[in-house]
Every structure is written in structure tokens, then in C-alpha cells.
Design a protein around this nucleic acid. Sequence first.
DNA 1: AAGTTGACTTAGACCTTGTCCAATGTAGGA
DNA 2: TCCTACATTGGACAAGGTCTAAGTCAACTT
Lengths: 138, 138
Amino acid sequence: MSDLLERLRGRGWRMTAQRRVVAEVLDGEHVHLTADEVHARAVAKLPEISRATVYNTLGELVSLGEVLEVSTDKRAKRYDPNAHRPHHHLVCARCGAIRDVHPTGNPLADLPDTERFGFTVSDVEVTYRGVCPDCTGA
Amino acid sequence: MSDLLERLRGRGWRMTAQRRVVAEVLDGEHVHLTADEVHARAVAKLPEISRATVYNTLGELVSLGEVLEVSTDKRAKRYDPNAHRPHHHLVCARCGAIRDVHPTGNPLADLPDTERFGFTVSDVEVTYRGVCPDCTGA
DNA sequence: AAGTTGACTTAGACCTTGTCCAATGTAGGA
DNA sequence: TCCTACATTGGACAAGGTCTAAGTCAACTT
């Protein structure tokens, strides 16, 4: 975690209490939080932090490549701190829980030139959908 | 298209002018429209149709499996009438344009049991991202 | 063909997620 | 320590979507 803060400082980030708190929240638990959840947890540590700052900071972390934005469902975007190891997602259709997964194979190679329509394809995102063990029982 | 209407009638759908219009819009052009775009086109054919009805009807078509919801970008959901042939999507990162694509290989088979965490995995969705020919020049 | 009824539609208020801005505060270099 | 450019704040705003109460009408019944 202090890794993350160090890295950010090295990139010219001005270190503020707010940014530190947001970084801590993301690092704290390896889950995929929505912006509002990040805000709620940040408020618990630093009551006067504002929503705008959380959005700003998340946006900056995303553009620095430290955090990934995941929009699996129609609702809020979620933020994935595990940006440094490529992975895909497994989403529960009932409760929205997300797990990181590592499929074999390379889907980028599975898209033939004839199916690229002149696009410069740079990235691929795979989302598996199903029902998680907790929801299967219900 | 009348296929679609027949199928829906057979499933107990009450046939109304509004639903017919929404179905026609989706069938008319093979593109991926947002709910608002569907509404705009529906209004052109039936001026008094309301936004709520369009949303309701789209939602019903989705749960009946006649239409797919695609949420590629953070903005509006898009609706894909091509629900009966499995396919994936290629999205332009600049302008948001979407194309249907058919990769080789089967990503579902690429997710080993050890990576399923007890989930009942039923579906996989692959989104390729890149820049389309129109936006590459700019 | 007319009556009946519950599904469908409507308009608009409301909610959620996210963005923007002007005023204010502050980290870190000089 | 002082300065100032960068960061934060709170509140207004916007877009996309949902909900509700009241009215309408498709299709079944007779």
C-alpha cells in the first residue's frame, strides 16, 4: 500500500489526507467497491471528505493506471484496485458480487482480422455471469 | 419482424400500438440504440408514446430474451435486437460505436473449475475495445 | 355487439450516479 | 516562513432511469 503512495508521490502527486484515505480504502479490502462505497468508507476515516474529491481521486487513479473501472451492471461503476495483474471478472447475476478470475487462452487472438472491421483493437474484457454459492441456496 | 410480434403474442403479450412501435424500431435497423434513441424513433411513429412505456417495453423484451442489454460504456445502456445469434461486441473507445463480432474459440471453456469459486456460470460476454476507422484518422 | 376487467399507458415527480464550478484551503518548494 | 499552484469543498446541475396514481383499452365473456 505504501508502495502505492510512494509510486504516486513519485509521479508528482501532491499528498493530501484525502488522497491517502482513498488509497487506503481501495487497498484495504480486495473487493470491488462503488464510488459511493468508497466515499462511505473514506468518510469513516476522515469525516469531512467530500463526494467530489472521492470522484476526482478515483478518476485520477484510473488515469494513472493504478485502479481499473469496471462497469459490469447497469448501476454504478466499480473500482478494482488489482490493476497490475491482468484478469477478468465473474459476476453474480443476483447479488452483483464480483470475483477476479484468470481464464486460460487469449481472447484477443480469437478475433480474426475479418472480424475487426478496420478497428485498431487494443483491449479485451471478458465478463462471466452466473450465480454465486451464497445466492444458489436461496 | 412480424415473427417477433407473433412470438410475443403467443407468450400472452397484449398487443398495443406502443409495443408494436417499439418492436418495429428495434427491428428496423440493425444497430445498437440507447433507450432514448428508441424513444425518439418511437415518437416519430406514434407521437404520444411516453418514455416510461418505452423503458417498460424494452425491459420486457429483455426479460423475454428477445433483446439483449449491452452496457459497454458508462453512459446509457444499449439494446441489441440480435439476441438469437450468439455474438460479442467491438466498441470504439472514442465515439462509442458498436459492432457485432464472432470470435473463434469458446471463452466459457477457458474458465477452469478452480477459477469458478462455486459459481454456476451460465454466460460469458466479451467486449473488444479499440478505435474505429472513422476515429483513427482524426 | 356490448360489457367487463385487469393489463397497459401516461405525465411527471423522484432517485441515483456522476459532473461542474467558484470560493476556500493547503502541500511543498523557495 | 511565505507563496502559489494544485487540491478540496459543497452545492447546484445533468443524464439516465424508476415509480406511482389515475386513466385507457385489448381481448375475453356472454
